[in-house]
Amino acid sequence: MTATKTPTERPPAQRVVRRAGDRLFAGSAKGSGIFILVVLAGVAAFLIGEAIPALTAPAEDVPGGEGLSGYIAPLVLGTLLGAVLALLVATPLAVGIALFVTYYAPRRIAAGLGYAIDLLAAIPSVVYGFWGLAVLAPALVPFHVWAADHLGWLPLFAGPASTSGRTMLTVGLVLAVMILPIISAIAREVFSQAPALHREAALALGATRWEMIKMAVLPYGKSGVIAGAMLGLGRALGETMAVAIVLSGGAGATLNLISSSNPSTIASNIALRFPEATGLGINTLIASGLVLFVITLAVNMLARWIVNRRADFSGAN
């Protein structure tokens, strides 16, 4: 009856009796969470482990004969080129789409239109590859010719124009379509959360719809759009199949977007070479995958950081 403990001992909440069922269930839930961390650590560890042979091999044994960095550098360039191009095209479009769906489209159909955009995200990337190869690439050939003729003074459009359209330019546009729904989904969300009070205040001052958006919506949604763009960038950097199918890559580093010799991207290069690779070739490809992993990780962490910082202020939850 009388407690043998002095009142100053452990507070009672810490000597809670826990049932076996509770302990088991809580344990497995926690275990699953820890398992995920282990998997992620495993991803990094296994990639590093399999990449080490390529890191330590003599330069002439690495495919291409110019050492690991000589092999990966053009791939990194190609990866960045395609992804940045996609980002530059997709971001303004996505902002426009998000504004259209949230503030311009008639209320009744806005949700349906948003759903149509979301469908873009549901289409498997291999199908985008098919479409890029069969439709977009040939359709862009005239533009390639035109750009080579009129914009040739820019290194980006130095030409000669590809006759198949399977260029970095086409890849960038396919990637832009693929990341459009990602960016616009986030932009839509932040735009629709812009405080109604500010929006109504702007309208009450006699602002036009665009002025209202400029005053009350865009400033509020800016960081959300940036974060969405970063997530889209992450996706574009890692996109494999669409690039592997559309791009005729494999040439060295070049900024030329419209010629038939393009640098490959890390991901598509792995997809194309891996099935036939052996020995050190595999290690080299895995090393390049590790580089991709690090790049996307950095981009995604940055994006999450922006999103989370914003969440702290938005007062959601």
Partner: peptide, 26 residues
């Protein structure tokens, strides 16, 4: 104590049984 971090000190006794006793199941 369902609320995270919440706790009590002291005694609550129901007909002789200490509700916060060491072997009492909440």
């Amino acid at each position: 104590e369902v609320i995270p971090g919440a706790r009590v000190e002291g005694k609550v006794v129901m007909d002789g049984q200490d509700l916060y006793g060491a072997d009492t199941d909440p």
